Computed example of a mutant assay.
Amino acid sequence: MDRFSSVDRRQFLKTAGAGAALAAAAPGMLLGDETKPTADAKSPESLVKVLFDSMNEKQKKEICLPWEHTDSRGLLRTRVQNNWHITKPQINSDYFTSDQKHLIRQIFEGIVAEDWVERFDRQLKDDAGGFGNDQNIAIFGTPGEDKFELVMTGRHMTMRCDGNSTPHVAFGGPIFYGHAAKGFNEKPDHPGNVFWHQAVAANNVYKMLDGKQQEQALLKTAPFEEDVKFRGPEGTFLGIKVADLSSDQKEGVQNVLKTLIAPYRQSDQDEVVACLDKNGGLDECRLAFFKEDNLGDDQVWDIWRLEGPSFVWHYRGSPHVHVWVNVADSPDVATNTG
């Protein structure tokens, strides 16, 4: 197969996100010391409006911002960082009522795949002491009236719920995820890291390459991890072009993509594939590995990157996992990284 075709895409959509939930919530959830039942099957976007409507004027003044709100560093809504607080109030603080905390948790569970909720909770426990303890939210725009987006931030997290009101982008804009499972400096095999299997999948593709292909795919120095701006169809890309791979090697890259998007709800998975499809599919992407910061000197490359005209998935696994993601259907979409 010479490209990620429409037929391949249909099959991919059937298999990539099996079990992902658009709005399903787990049987119960833990918030601090209290456990609340989840009896609501509304979409996360509907719950953002419920949350917005429940806020008092003080909360709206601090949490809710105009769609085009900017600060000294540009459009705040499109910013992505590895550790930041978009607003001051922590989710698990007394600033929010018990019902509001419950809604925020439901929104969070609704935008990730059902079988990933526990794994995200494990990451949040390791990195921030648990869900809501070092996280914040902001709501841009007015839910129910026009464009709107809830952005959740904290250590190793930038996550979005936008109801497809943000044009041309997957996930509502650039996202970030990461994990330091056993401390800041992880061992080469990253024990307990919920995202390390993604690097294993990519390295399995590297092992499938012959000597000449490995020379093309492996570079000495990685680009800055936060550099996820789009290069466009005429851009210069690192690594080996997926179009030049054999059919079984391409299948391996497709498996990497499935693994990368699996943590998120089906609609976001579909958006990623649709954005890729509009720009020539995986065939227009390149896969690169980097010798830099190879933990254990084991040639299981901790840093790697899958990139196309308007697709960037940068994985940095040293000294612990950082992953920067930016996906759109056009390279003209601007982002605010770093």
Rank of each mutant, 00 (worst) to 15 (best):
R155Y: 09
H156D: 11
H156F: 14
M157K: 02
M157F: 03
T158Q: 04
T158M: 03
T158P: 01
C161H: 01
D162T: 15
G163P: 00
N164Y: 11
S165Q: 13
S165F: 08
T166M: 09
P167L: 08
H168V: 06
H168E: 13
V169Q: 04
F171D: 06
G172F: 02
G172E: 02
G172V: 07
G172R: 01
P174Q: 07
P174D: 08
F176H: 05
Y177S: 10
Y177G: 07
Y177V: 11
Y177I: 13
Y177R: 13
Y177K: 07
G178S: 09
G178K: 01
H179N: 14
H179S: 10
A180D: 14
A180N: 12
A181L: 05
A181E: 07
K182H: 15
K182E: 15
K182I: 11
K182T: 15
F184R: 06
F184G: 01
P188E: 07
P188D: 05
P191I: 02
P191L: 03
P191V: 03
G192F: 09
G192Q: 08
G192R: 08
N193D: 15
V194E: 14
W196I: 09
H197K: 13
H197Y: 15
Q198E: 15
A199S: 15
A199M: 08
V200H: 06
V200P: 02
A201R: 09
A201Y: 03
A201M: 10
A202F: 05
N203G: 06
N203S: 07
N204D: 14
N204W: 02
N204F: 04
N204A: 13
V205K: 00
V205S: 00
Y206C: 07
M208E: 11
M208G: 03
M208Q: 14
L209P: 02
D210C: 08
D210P: 00
K212L: 08
Q213D: 09
Q213V: 08
Q214V: 06
Q214G: 06
Q214D: 06
E215V: 13
Q216K: 14
A217K: 03
A217C: 05
L218Y: 04
L219Q: 14
L219E: 12
K220S: 11
K220G: 04
T221H: 09
A222Q: 00
A222G: 00
A222P: 00
P223C: 04
D227V: 06
V228P: 00
K229P: 00
K229E: 11
K229R: 12
